[in-house]
Amino acid sequence: MSPRSPAKPQPNPQQNHLLAALSPDVQSRLFPHLELVHLPLRALMYESGTSMSHVYFPTDSIVSLQYVMENGASTAILVVGNEGLLGITLFMGGESTPSRSVVQSAGYAYRLPRPQVKEEFNRHGQLLLLMLRYTQALITQVAQTAVCNRHHSIDQQLCRWLLLSMDRLSHNHLTMTQEFIGHMLGVRREGVTQAALKLQQLGVISYSRGLIKVIDRDQLEHLSCECYEVVKKETAILLTYLPQRQLIKNPEDIPVVVLKTQ
């Protein structure tokens, strides 16, 4: 995590939908304590068992929470983007987390120190309500991910992951390796490659030289298992502050995922 580069345009805290949903009074108390940080791809935010000093509110980045086994194998249990925050254990009574947090899509986030988080949470006001609702949405995502990883194909899991990622970005591209996606899904890189090629043959995506373009999002949702729809509906019910997803009408707005083979 490094300070923001001066050459980059400064993101706005209200690009994070949770921060934007807070009342002006709450924002006036919290915003002066926010610090903008750059989150490079694959940066380790938190390791399992380490103490957490901040919560992070992504603006245009995605963080993957992964459970790591003793043999080093890992699987993503949820993703966090501009819809919420990273670090719910700080206000749920814990100081650390059993999972590892890794940047899945590079970008920026605003971080808030632990004392300010707890002080505002203990007011039992708006932030408390929003965070509890967000926590419930995360619980749904974790539970559905567990079911999906056990009962659904790699093809369906890839569709679900692509949809969840696009829903949590303010831009239309991702850059990462096939190996990294395999780690998140708990499958071999070859399985990711085969699943992407199948989607291309069906006309859902174009796949060339490591570049994936989503051509037909409706078909992508159709090919995904019910797990994506369950998470999306529960999130919409609980997180009423989220904007409605816009339908893609301009071909230039088609979401892009860049997959590097190395």
Results as ranks from 00 to 15, higher is better:
N16F: 02
H17T: 14
H17P: 03
L18G: 00
A21E: 02
A21C: 04
P24E: 12
D25F: 09
Q27L: 04
Q27E: 06
R29G: 08
R29S: 07
L30D: 04
P32K: 02
P32R: 02
L36H: 11
H38L: 15
H38V: 14
L39Y: 03
L39E: 07
P40G: 13
A43H: 09
M45S: 10
G49E: 09
G49M: 07
S51Y: 08
S53K: 08
V55R: 00
S61G: 13
S61P: 10
I62H: 00
L65E: 05
L65M: 08
L65K: 01
E70F: 14
E70M: 11
E70Y: 11
E70W: 12
N71G: 09
G72H: 06
G72V: 09
A73E: 15
A76H: 05
V79S: 09
V80G: 02
V80L: 08
G81R: 00
G81M: 04
N82I: 06
N82G: 06
L85Q: 09
L86P: 05
L86Q: 07
G87F: 01
I88L: 10
I88W: 08
F91L: 08
F91M: 12
T97L: 01
R100N: 15
R100F: 12
Q104C: 02
A106Y: 05
A106W: 04
A109M: 01
A109F: 00
R111P: 01
P113Y: 00
R114I: 01
R114S: 02
R114N: 02
Q116N: 13
E119A: 08
F121E: 12
N122H: 15
H124A: 14
H124W: 12
G125R: 01
G125D: 03
L127I: 15
L127R: 06
L128D: 12
M131L: 14
L132K: 15
L132A: 15
L132Y: 14
R133A: 11
T135F: 11
A137G: 07
A137D: 07
